[in-house]
Nucleic acid binder design. Structure first.
Lengths: 136, 136
DNA sequence: CTTTTTGCAAACCCTTTGCAAGACA
DNA sequence: TGTCTTGCAAAGGGTTTGCAAAAAG
């Protein structure tokens, strides 16, 4: 049962491509809703989830925060700035073999892993430096 | 300002040790509340959070689910069964150097990472096999 | 015409918060 | 005593759901 090709689906997929930097479902909703006020929040959440399940888009699960969506689908990891919440791609080589190691260690059949880095983004590092300079 | 040594704090810490397998804050609350009905949910959440911040216990952030707490404090990763929600320890070597690689690749100052495996636990694998056998 | 999707609002889960009363040091 | 912690209930963020109306195939 392939998904039906509804207007909303198109609108939402397009909006995601337009919005860079891993928007949350709610950010996508705001963008979509601004242009097409009749589109409801539930539709955006449902559609993004479905697109992600189909593999058409990526879903980035954030510890302690809203899921984010990504029009890019190739595998890569993410960093999150603990100060401003910004999320960026991290181009480190994908961990290969680690799933097998985990399977061997746990007895689970491993289907995948998710890895998230936490840190301070360049902009917040700069801001920090300014704070220190002005405080000192 | 060291934390005060309150009765509730003791009760909650003890309950966590008793409860194996990474209980959620709410599971700790249920256990504590059953024995000590006067202890409120907010106290359990607050106290677990504080204990985790102090490093006295571990906090396991689960994608898309409630945080879990762990009376063990040594660093290790976790697997989550996508069928039953069970969370287990995975004894694979901690990833060393990966934070530096991520820092170099992203420009962030990396403070750490979190890695979660997803899969099917041994019990659910067995259940699956039975299902297939009876369906076929 | 049948089945899937939509839109709305309400429900849901997990967690945090404001505040007055109570416990610690 | 002065300050931290508690308990309560309400609020909060993020997401899902029930249902009738609308749209896709």
């Amino acid at each position: 049962m392939p998904a039906r090709n509804t207007v909303q689906r198109q609108i939402i997929a397009d909006a995601l491509c337009q919005l860079a930097n891993h928007p949350t479902a709610d950010e996508v909703y705001e963008a979509v809703h601004a242009e097409h006020p009749s589109v409801g929040r539930a539709t955006v959440y449902r559609t993004l989830g479905r697109l992600a399940d189909e593999g058409a888009i990526g879903r980035v699960r954030i510890n302690n925060g809203a899921d984010r969506f990504d029009h890019q689908t190739f595998a890569h990891y993410h960093v999150r700035c603990v100060r401003c919440g910004r999320v960026d791609d991290v181009m480190v080589a994908e961990l290969r073999g680690i799933d097998d190691a985990a399977a061997a260690a746990s007895g689970y059949r491993i289907s995948g892993h998710s890895l998230q880095f936490d840190g301070i983004c360049p902009a917040c590092q700069a801001a920090e430096k300014n704070d220190e300079a002005s405080t000192a």
